[in-house]
Design a protein around this nucleic acid. Sequence first.
RNA 1: GUGGGCGUAGCUCAACGGGAUAGAGCACUGGACUGUGGCUCCAGGGGUUGGGGGUUCGAGUCCCCUCGCCCACCCCA
Length: 432
Amino acid sequence: MRYKRPRGTQDILPDQVSEWRLAEETFRRIANDFGYSEIRTPIFEETDLFVRSVGAETDIVAKEMYTFSDRGGRSLTLRPEGTAPVVRAFLENNLQGTDPGRVVKLFYIAPVFRYDRPQAGRYRQHHQAGIEALGSASPALDAEVMHLAWLFYSALGLEQVDLLLNSVGCTVCRPVYVERLRAYLAGHARALCDDCRRRYEANPLRILDCKNPACRQVTADAPMMLDVLCDDCARHFAEVRKVLETIGITYQVDPRIVRGLDYYTKTAFEFVGKGLGAQDALGGGGRYDGLVEACGGPPTPGVGLGIGLERVLLARQALGLSVGAPARRGVFVIGLGEAAAQWAIAFLARLRAAGVRADLDYRFRSLRAQMRHADAMGFRYAAIAGDEELSRGEVTVRDLETATQESLPTEGAIEYLSSMSRREHCGGNAHG
RNA sequence: GUGGGCGUAGCUCAACGGGAUAGAGCACUGGACUGUGGCUCCAGGGGUUGGGGGUUCGAGUCCCCUCGCCCACCCCA
């Protein structure tokens, strides 16, 4: 094989596309229902946008970005996450207008690139469906974001999804906490794993997230961010919990979840699925009240969410869920013999011009072979003509579902088939 | 980035401890049914055994390199 797709990428083949469309269309519908509008941003941005927003010390920026310089010498980066580009577009296009209190709610479905070592559920190009709500600090909005994800998973048949909730504080209380955590850990440095000893300086919060049993033991009695939140953050967290309970969303407080992007403040959450192995995060997000300002805009609170579509589809697969075959639809045209082949081409063109789903077999094989093909391709009708029908100006119309057929004059057949086709569009139970 | 497992028709898998022409099911094509799909039966086409090198009289099988996938770590979606 001469060429192969780049490592960690995937071809989405025709037989998988209906699953993708189901996920995308479900997300679009729900996001729209929640008052979010779709936005599409470039697939690459100035490298600095991600460095400044995501954080230079994060794994994403430090070792996972696809960064390149273009012919003009600009440093550009393939989007490694969805939020920063949306915030950039929000500012650049002044989507907030002249009302500083306006809440701007946006959603996107876009490919995301990270140079990770691939494994199941982890790719170098994956797709995220995300939302961003900018302009409001209301805890009810945090809950709305989680509610949207909740309904999305449930609409796709994923009922066993756990919501893990935490607060990572703000610029007031987090630095205080980090120092307290360092002070605590200082006495246990020898018990920590190598990675965590490195994290001690760079990002001690990460140590809480370490799965190493020794580190777990050390941090079991460590002070927790949740216990040290400032009044504002504590009030916010309590309020988010209250709204979630009002809405009826079950969640678990997990003081250890720390997101991999530096811009998060206050609320941080993750949705975790079952049967997915180590890569079990189906989505995550949180509040980022300092991000807009860090990107050069006015102080503007925000909260958002990203959902990994590959993992959602993997989770559906693990449950044995799949989009059913669509209802039979359209007409397969079969001309037998040379004269009839010409007739078939013309008949096909007229059906298509009338908006009917229709095709024919350009190999003009045996009737049997063509019937089998029509059946396999999911056509509802076969329109068959040989010399016999042509001499009478008629066509045999067979309904593949009821296995009945009748002879119709050519004109009447087109009218009949296009009216049946219109009915299929309104009354059909097909989707995807 | 670290450690480990696995790569055989389009797909899912066989092939004693190296031995002859690498098999089967599904799918595909044709036929039984000379102009009628799904079921059944019969027949057929299809492989540089991921790629490259080595050991051997002989390699799908053993060794080395490489690429890819998978699992765990890591990280996260």
